[in-house]
Write a protein that binds this DNA or RNA. Sequence first.
DNA 1: TCATGGTGTGAGAACGTTCGCATGTCGCGA
DNA 2: TCGCGACATGCGAACGTTCTCACACCATGA
Lengths: 384, 384
Amino acid sequence: MEDQFDSSQVIMEVRAKVAAKPKATIADVARLAGVSTATAGRVLGGYGYTSGSKKDQVMKAAEKLGYKPNALARSLITGKTRTIGVVAGDIRNPFYAFVLRGISNIAEKEGFGLLITNSDESFEQETRAVDLLVEKQVDGLIVSPCDTRDSAHLRALHASGTPLVLIDRAVEGLEIDRVGTANVSAAREAVQRLIQAGHRRIGLVAELVEEAEGGVVSFIARAQAGEPVESAALYPSWQRLLGYVQAHLVARVPVDPTLVLRAGEYSAEAAERACLALLQRDDRPSAVFTTDGTMSEGAMAAIAKLGLSIPTQLSMIGFDDLDWMAFLPPGISTVAQPRMAMGEAAARMLLEQISGADIPPRTVLMPASLVERGSVSAPDTSLR
Amino acid sequence: MEDQFDSSQVIMEVRAKVAAKPKATIADVARLAGVSTATAGRVLGGYGYTSGSKKDQVMKAAEKLGYKPNALARSLITGKTRTIGVVAGDIRNPFYAFVLRGISNIAEKEGFGLLITNSDESFEQETRAVDLLVEKQVDGLIVSPCDTRDSAHLRALHASGTPLVLIDRAVEGLEIDRVGTANVSAAREAVQRLIQAGHRRIGLVAELVEEAEGGVVSFIARAQAGEPVESAALYPSWQRLLGYVQAHLVARVPVDPTLVLRAGEYSAEAAERACLALLQRDDRPSAVFTTDGTMSEGAMAAIAKLGLSIPTQLSMIGFDDLDWMAFLPPGISTVAQPRMAMGEAAARMLLEQISGADIPPRTVLMPASLVERGSVSAPDTSLR
DNA sequence: TCATGGTGTGAGAACGTTCGCATGTCGCGA
DNA sequence: TCGCGACATGCGAACGTTCTCACACCATGA
């Protein structure tokens, strides 16, 4: 028969003992080294004056105890965390992945940590993310805002003096450092290339979340009428649409609004569905231009599904230089954004703000380059 | 003539005033609400007892002052930061991007922050990253270790009681929670599929950083001789090589070691170079199997460059389900790892550790599924 | 009437750093 | 010899929370 000894209490104690990890503090090190905490702190923290002899003692003691500084306590008093927060749309999207990598490059070099969150392009999630980061006292934020109009939380943030850099998108009337792409001109040049190759009916596959008053048709009409459009605070996909219209305008080619596709939702599947419908029309376009990586992916899926051959049956220019564009025969021409450099630029600007430099708001618009491969040729004359 | 007044001093003062942002503290709120800091803390922190009336006063005061809790101070005393640290290889790699997204999903749901670093598969960078995260007092770490043998820093970390989960790779003799892929069986099944289709000469494109004693040839020889290979702590690419050999063994097909390619370095370019050489040989294989996404990309680039058509001239099975594999004609069959689920599993395990659950070390090996598309057919009989 | 126990409140310590200040000790030029 | 600045050290306060106490209030039931 087993004895009645209840082992749970003992086990709890053992566990507690195992779990106990008496991290060494500066006070411990100081005690062992026989100096004051202030002196130990000066040695370990590398500030103030310290003599060689004491320095040795302290270092030795720290080594012995396996001392690791507690950044929390340090930050609490210095008011600096050496951490920057980032709100991206979705890390899985190569655009953000590369931007993040760029930010990370700079952060790492400067010894900063990186607190990363996803907004999924949802305003509510973005707000929550910003709150989280602010509570964690990040020294600054890099945000890809999902709302380019209101974004009261970002205005408040900036007003409170928190270093803040916007990436990819701007916020209307919020004049702060930001880095983006020269979308209008990049898109214009790409579409011009298509027109120059002889195309007159060019499809556009774009995300185009509803925000321009009057919708796409009215937007196109206004742009086509040569009305000056305030494009700076537009969503990138709208800016690229603007470039598309401008290219037509310059070449005096009319825009057929039925050729511009709103995926409506930001996913390759949505783009594929929309594109599939477009390419099955009798009067289908002889070329397509897509306004970002995700749209390019969706469009490509649709093209593959229909078995259309590029460029003989359909010319195409994509956006963002995705890996497959290089080797998918015949090579997909595309507008390449310097994604990683954008992240690096944003991080550098943020660090400048953090270090206290008082610089007027800068807008860095990076040039996107058209990398030409084999997906553009003259339109198939047998068509229409 | 301009006056000599030096404005710089004045400007400095103005700037300092602008930069001043007197964040409200609990003490401020308490003062305004006419209660003690303890009571205000109880209301705002949601712990202990508070009466409805005081709660109202405090909330109102907090609202008025725009109070935001300082997580630093909270963490300093509670010893919990509600932040987890991640050391990934490179965010740009879709594998890590998806894993990170999985981790982020769980973290966000539980209100945890995510401190992300890249190791670039460099031991030194990994060590620095871990140090940074530890100093920032993360509650736990998810690491994709770049060294599967030594990794003294990870052993020490675990010994100190820090919650730790390994992902993708294991560390020899370090028995802690980890999540990975059933690499051997996944690779074996993929290669079996190739053999079953009639292929006898199957190329393998793998990263294979040098670590098995005796190198690739000796490793193959031992595996082929049926020697039991301790595969758990092997690098994934070696495990996949093992599966490749096993498939040959089962089917009694001899392995030609010259067909297994070491990219040597972890990049698509290296894979492309190696693959290009292989596919230009007179006795080139009739099929290739690649051991991860990056290798698949490189191999595909080589195939495209040579203009080989899949599957008539060359069959292929890739690893990781990359976007283009779905639409690159004729569709690339591949071994799909549940990348995001892996991240989620790792995060969940870590959070369990953090919450104090005392669970024996678990190894979660996720099944990878062979998604069959059009890239496998019988070998071209005109060959060899 | 008196313990009892849940509820509510505040004073003050604690977390692990850095910072301000006071107090030295040098060496050097006047 | 004095004064002065650079170097060196320690004491105790601060950072903004939460935690531990001590105490007080109020029902409840014996």
